[in-house]
């Protein structure tokens, strides 16, 4: 198999597995809806309060939902031995790790991006803000998935690693969160957001090129 075909083969396999376990697929979405529903209940359902809060809440909840789904990203593969087969195989491990992360984003990140505008409307976010929220999430969540994959690969051999994973990757995710939420907020106030968008794009390109190398090195450590 060439490099390209192993990439698609891994994505296909991951998607097949994901659709066999619909529960795992839906739970981050439920979490996203629930967390965003907590704020109006705990704070105030007033329009102006929610409007101010919307960019931060929708971004933070998306980050947490994604983090929650990252926990078991490589664990089952490490436990059932299929990861070991991929590592000793002839294919480039960084490419395989990238494929796995892309597949994970397709099943957990993309649905969050699609769900976000619905939730944004319940927060009375103006149309400009909703558009910016979708855009920033679309560019930002792949970076979050990639950064999370390093942490997931490092902790793949550790049980009860949820809190550790959060501690490892949350500081790294901060820039994405800051520009994502801030960009949404700026757009809601009617300002241009090309600056935050360019930065988010730069983060994504940088992590697309470097992160697979790091997570490949990390998964090798977890395997032996």
């Amino acid at each position: 198999m060439t490099g390209g075909s192993i990439f698609w083969a891994v994505i296909q396999r991951e998607l097949q597995i994901a659709f066999q376990r619909l529960g795992d697929l839906v739970s981050p979405l439920m979490f996203y809806v629930l967390v965003t529903a907590l704020f109006p209940l705990a704070l105030s359902p007033k329009r102006e309060v929610l409007q101010n809060l919307a960019p931060a809440v929708l971004w933070i909840a998306a980050l947490l939902a994604l983090l929650l789904s990252m926990n078991a990203l490589f664990r089952t593969d490490v436990e059932d031995g299929s990861m070991e087969q991929l590592v000793i195989g002839p294919h480039s491990l960084p490419l395989i790790m990238l494929a796995k992360t892309v597949a994970h984003w397709l099943v957990s990140g993309l649905p969050l991006v699609l769900l976000a505008p619905l939730l944004a409307v319940t927060y009375y976010l103006p149309a400009e803000g909703v558009r910016a929220l979708c855009l920033t999430l679309l560019i930002g969540t792949p970076t979050l998935s990639l950064l999370g994959s390093i942490g997931a690969a490092l902790t793949a051999g550790i049980r009860q690693s949820g809190a550790l994973l959060a501690l490892l990757v949350m500081p790294l995710m901060l820039p994405v969160l800051m520009y994502g939420a801030r960009g949404t907020d700026l757009a809601a106030q009617g300002e241009t957001i090309s600056g935050p968008l360019y930065l988010l794009g730069a983060f994504m390109v940088l992590s697309l090129t470097l992160v697979p190398l790091a997570s490949a090195a990390a998964i090798r450590v977890s395997l032996d």
Partner: peptide
């Protein structure tokens, strides 16, 4: 493992 993290 921690070396990978330190470099990242």
């Amino acid at each position: 493992a921690s070396a990978v993290l330190a470099i990242v």
